[in-house]
Amino acid sequence: MKDRLLPYWLLIPAFVIVLATTIYPLAYSFVTSFREWDLTKQRRPGGFVGVDNYLHAASESGFQNSLWVTTIFVVTSVALTLVIAMSLALLLRRKGRMHTFTRIILILPFAMSPALIGVSYRFMFNPEFGVLAKGIGAVFPSLEGTPWLADPDLAMAILVLTDVWHWAPYMTFMCLGGLASIPRETEEAARVDGASNLRIVFGIILPQMKGVLLVTAVLKTIFALKMFDQVVTLTGGGPGVSTETLAFFVFNVGFKWYDMGYASALAWILTAIMMVISIWYVRMLLSERKMATA
């Protein structure tokens, strides 16, 4: 064997594993999205139907509802997470015993499994015995007995809240990393030049955090687009269809109604949305880089 070929031989096992575990299922679902496949009737994918599955999505109210729910969810949860994470990072970046302690306990929400978070919050918002429901009722008596998860808007708000609670700590750490890389001198120069604290944050720190915030926003957007676990365990998509996110809807189509062709098409629509966002983000980041180092 020639030495020149050895590296390729060595790569083959990894290549085969990647092929088998990701490329194959991806390709399979892509092909399936152009076929008819009702799991209740057929054991194998049926005939090709062209883009029918995609056309069906365009006119179906369940899908349109899930798109709308997802949009609301993504926008509010990304915005809230970023604002909270950035604010926490600004508060926690100084050194000190309390700061270190707070940073450590901040890891806890992120360490919890999303499914568990959903179940816990479901209990905590139970109007009969939930800790949070009772607590809120004690502070605001008019809210006593509110059926939190039975109201479409409130259920959505709680879904967003749990997601922010889960992700904000992690994003705080990303922001802390970004803050640490800003030269302290730019901030001190601004202080000497006469800037107030607020101006330093908005005029000096945030502009330098642009790259980090962009990465954080895109990661959070992609995670939010895939929101599934907490929907299952917290709201079950309800009340009605008011919290049926796209990922949850795809799951229902596939594994409740057994329409595999349509489910595959929907999954690919979700993938396309994420790809567009990722590409847009890479371009933004590249132009940002170019500005910083040109």
Binding site: E185, T186, E188, A189, R191, V192, D193, P207
Partner: peptide, 17 residues
């Protein structure tokens, strides 16, 4: 610092990038 009427040049310049 802003009320001391000083100006400072830092070792790493501290320019606003």
């Amino acid at each position: 610092p802003k009320d001391r009427d000083i100006a400072m040049v830092f070792q790493n310049y501290g320019l606003y990038p």
